[in-house]
């Protein structure tokens, strides 16, 4: 497939996925809204934000403030590039796609931190601090559960990992994998109940000072990040494009949408975790569980 073809495919997945997420989130969290209005909601909200002027604060770090949303979106796109959507790509995969994805996801920390830093305002800054504490606590378990799927596949290429699930999904082979992955992925996308950087207790935190196109861009970049994380979850744990009858790309879409809706559901129904509790949870609960996942998978692979 050509570079342009991959680009179009990734863009379509990110935009489509962001729309599915926005509608699901609206249906779950919205008040007194009917189903029809939920489908037009993302479009109307985007239109309003595009009309709203971009406000500024007193002496912000303007360059960082402008660049952070683009960086976040870029990272989401880079993470998505290594994931085959419709079937094995004829030109071959990115050889170490899994590593590229993992690296992109951990740099999200930088994008979020500077977006909190840039407005020169106290509540966004606290949001940035919180995210640093969060990612440091779950970065290792996140990377471990993703990389563990490479053990039975004996490859770091996402395409090979998908192909190696033709008999059994890794959801069943590595039962600890997907739960840990979803928890840490929600945290990396600062999505509820781990939306500490954007908490109500910070009046919106990192986005408290953002408005208009800047806020729209940030919201879209975050949704795209959720899509990338769900795409990867579907690829390495749910067999990606593998499935009977339907075409491969449709299986990818269905599996990704299921993960997105699952995340939307937990995001709106659970109480936000305290940051101290989260740090404890990351180091004391998730990290040992992720190590167990690695050892057991290695044992089975031997």
């Amino acid at each position: 497939m050509t570079t342009l073809g991959i680009g179009i495919q990734v863009a379509a997945m990110l935009v489509g996925g962001a729309y599915v997420l926005a509608v699901a989130d609206r249906l779950i969290g919205g008040s007194g809204s009917n189903v029809r209005s939920a489908f037009s909601y993302p479009v109307k909200r985007l239109s309003f934000l595009m009309l709203q002027p971009v406000t500024t604060t007193e002496r912000p770090d303007l360059a960082a403030w402008i660049l952070a949303p683009s960086l976040l979106l870029g990272l989401a796109a880079v993470g998505a590039v290594s994931i085959p959507i419709g079937g094995p790509s004829p030109g071959g995969d990115i050889p170490a796609g899994l590593v590229l994805f993992g690296a992109a996801m951990l740099i999200v920390l930088v994008a979020v931190f500077i977006f909190g830093w840039a407005p020169n305002s106290v509540l966004p800054m606290i949001g940035g601090y919180r995210f640093a504490a969060m990612v440091l606590s779950i970065g290792i378990p996140f990377s471990l559960v993703v990389l563990t799927t490479a053990i039975p596949a004996e490859s770091l290429s996402v395409g090979t990992i998908v192909e190696s699930q033709s008999s059994l999904w890794y959801l069943l082979v590595q039962p600890l994998g997907l739960p840990i992955y979803l928890i840490t992925a929600a945290a990396i996308a600062f999505w509820g109940p781990f939306d500490l950087p954007e908490g109500t207790d910070l009046a919106g935190g990192i986005v408290a000072e953002a408005s208009g196109a800047r806020l729209a861009m940030w919201r879209f970049a975050r949704a795209a990040l959720m899509v990338t994380l769900s795409l990867m979850g579907a690829a390495v744990f749910l067999g990606g494009y593998l499935g009977p009858v339907l075409p491969g790309w449709l299986w990818t879409v269905i599996k990704t949408a299921v993960l997105l809706i699952l995340l939307a559901l937990t995001g709106r129904t659970m109480a936000r975790i305290r940051v101290q509790r989260f740090v404890w949870f990351g180091w004391v609960v998730l990290l040992p569980l992720a190590l167990v996942d690695v050892f057991v998978s290695g044992w089975v692979a031997l």
Partner: peptide
């Protein structure tokens, strides 16, 4: 519940 981010229950 609203401040804790549990929007649905708050409603």
């Amino acid at each position: 519940l609203l401040i804790a981010g549990a929007d649905r229950l708050s409603l």
